[in-house]
Amino acid sequence: MTAPQLFFAYFAVMITVLSLLMITRRNPVHGVLWMLVLFVHIAGLYIFLNAEFLAAIQIIVYAGAILVLFLFVIMLLNLKKEETVKKFQKHWLVGVGTGIIFAVFSVSIVRKIEVFPQLGKYTIEAVKAEGNIMTVGKVLYTKYLLPFEIASVILLVAIIGAVVLAKKRIE
């Protein structure tokens, strides 16, 4: 195994183990904390794939914002007694079976992929020469300007929606 492969193997194993840990914790707070570690690893993987900008976003948005939101909600709802009851559903075996079949299927699809599209112009050297953020920014604000604006609208709607949904009913 070469060094990059070893590096990948570490991340792959860690990500898998951390996901398993995350979904099996009884206490959601623990789950969130494992998830934090997991996201840091995913960010590491992004860096490994020359996507520094996304790595930063991953940490800032996911770890910084979304997970904190989860923690807030968990604390907001008083879930003491939830921790004592069974954590899995009755037919959890069916779920696990489905998941495993899913994994098997997905892996077998990967083997079948034969057609590869043409390589684009963003070679590693080209991106490095300009800087990852610069490259992403240029594409995002030119070709994908409209989707970008739509994303901002979606976020705005989400803000309003969250406020409307979660506020106290005024009778």
Binding site: T16, Q89, G95
Partner: peptide
């Protein structure tokens, strides 16, 4: 992804 699916299908919380 499959782990996510399993989590989604099995957890009660």
């Amino acid at each position: 992804f499959s782990i996510g699916v399993i989590g989604f299908l099995t957890r009660r919380n």
